[in-house]
C-alpha cells in the first residue's frame, strides 16, 4: 500500500488540450502481487493530454508496477485504466498488446536497445509492429527512415552513429536512441522508467530537457519516473510514492 502526494502546478491552462481525453486515467486501482504483497490500494490518478508527470519514490515503492498497470502489462485486481480515452483494463491480452504498440512509447533505465542492430534499425522497430505509428509518420509526409534520422539528429545522435551497432554506443547515446525510438510514430503517451538513473546528473538533465522538448513539439504526454526530486520543476504534475509499512513488515 502506498501513500501518495499528488500535486499539480497552477499554470495549467484549459486550452485545446482540455477537449482531448486525459492521457492517463486510473480510478480505484487495487493491485497486489500474487505473492500477496500489496502495491496499490484504491489508487486514482489523472494526467491530462500533453501533461508531464514526474513519479518519484524510493526503490521498491511501486513505481515500475504502476507503469506496468498504465501500459497494460499488468491488470489491476480492481479499478479501471484508461489511456488516451480508451479503457484498456477490459481489453483482451491481444488487444492490449496492440494498443500499447500503437499508443505507448517506452524507455527503461538501461538495456533498451537490441545490441546487434544499428541505432537507426533500433529506432525503426516500433514501426515494424505498429501500422498505426507507421501511418502517423507517413501522414507527416516523411519517409520512415528519414523520420528516424531526423529524430536521432534532434536527440544529438549524428549520422556517424546511425549505422553503429547499439552495443558500441555509450550509455547516454543508447538512452537518446531509445528516446528516439519511443517517440517515432508519435504515440500519444511516453513512459520512461528511470531513464536517467544510469547517467551522470548533468547528462541526465540534458536528456530530460531533450525529451520534454520533443514531447512538447509532438504534443505527447509524458510519464517520467526518477528518484531524483530535483527534476520536479520541469514537470506540470508530480506524484511521490512512498512505501507504507504493511502489517507484514512490522
Amino acid at each position: 500500500m502506498v501513500d501518495m502526494a499528488i500535486s499539480s502546478s497552477a499554470d495549467d491552462s484549459p486550452g485545446l488540450t482540455a477537449q482531448l481525453p486525459p492521457a492517463v486515467s486510473l480510478t480505484g486501482i487495487t493491485f497486489a502481487w500474487p505473492s500477496g504483497e500489496p502495491v496499490l490500494d484504491d489508487f486514482s490518478l489523472e494526467l491530462k493530454a500533453c501533461g508531464k508527470l514526474l513519479i518519484t519514490g524510493a526503490s521498491g515503492s511501486g513505481k515500475s508496477t504502476l507503469l506496468s498497470l498504465m501500459s497494460g502489462i499488468l491488470k489491476p485486481q480492481k479499478g479501471t485504466v484508461s489511456i488516451v480515452g480508451k479503457e484498456i483494463s477490459s481489453l483482451s491480452n491481444f488487444k492490449r498488446d496492440r494498443f500499447r504498440g500503437d499508443n505507448i512509447g517506452y524507455i527503461f533505465q538501461q538495456f533498451n536497445l537490441v545490441p546487434y542492430l544499428s541505432s537507426l534499425e533500433n529506432v525503426l522497430i516500433p514501426l515494424r509492429f505498429s501500422s498505426l505509428r507507421r501511418k502517423r509518420v507517413l501522414q507527416d509526409n516523411k519517409g520512415l527512415s528519414e523520420r528516424a534520422k531526423e529524430l536521432l539528429e534532434r536527440l544529438s545522435i549524428g549520422p556517424s552513429l546511425w549505422h553503429r551497432p547499439a552495443s558500441k554506443l555509450s550509455v547516454g547515446q543508447q538512452q537518446r536512441v531509445a528516446a528516439a525510438r519511443a517517440l517515432i510514430g508519435r504515440p500519444p503517451l511516453l513512459i520512461a522508467d528511470e531513464p536517467t538513473s544510469a547517467l551522470d546528473k548533468e547528462i541526465g538533465l540534458v536528456f530530460l530537457r531533450l525529451l520534454l522538448k520533443e514531447c512538447e513539439e509532438a504534443s505527447l504526454s509524458l510519464v517520467f519516473v526518477s528518484h531524483d526530486e530535483s527534476f520536479a520543476s520541469e514537470f506540470s504534475q508530480r506524484l511521490s510514492l512512498r512505501r507504507v509499512e504493511t502489517p507484514l513488515d512490522s
Binding site: 498488446d97 496492440r98 504498440g101 500503437d102 517506452y106 522497430i125 516500433p126 515494424r128 509492429f129
Partner: peptide
C-alpha cells in the same frame, strides 16, 4: 530474454 523483452517494449506481442 532481455532481447525479447526489448522487442515487447517496442510493440511486439507475445505472438510476434
Amino acid at each position: 530474454r532481455r532481447e525479447l523483452a526489448i522487442l515487447r517494449s517496442t510493440g511486439a506481442s507475445p505472438l510476434d
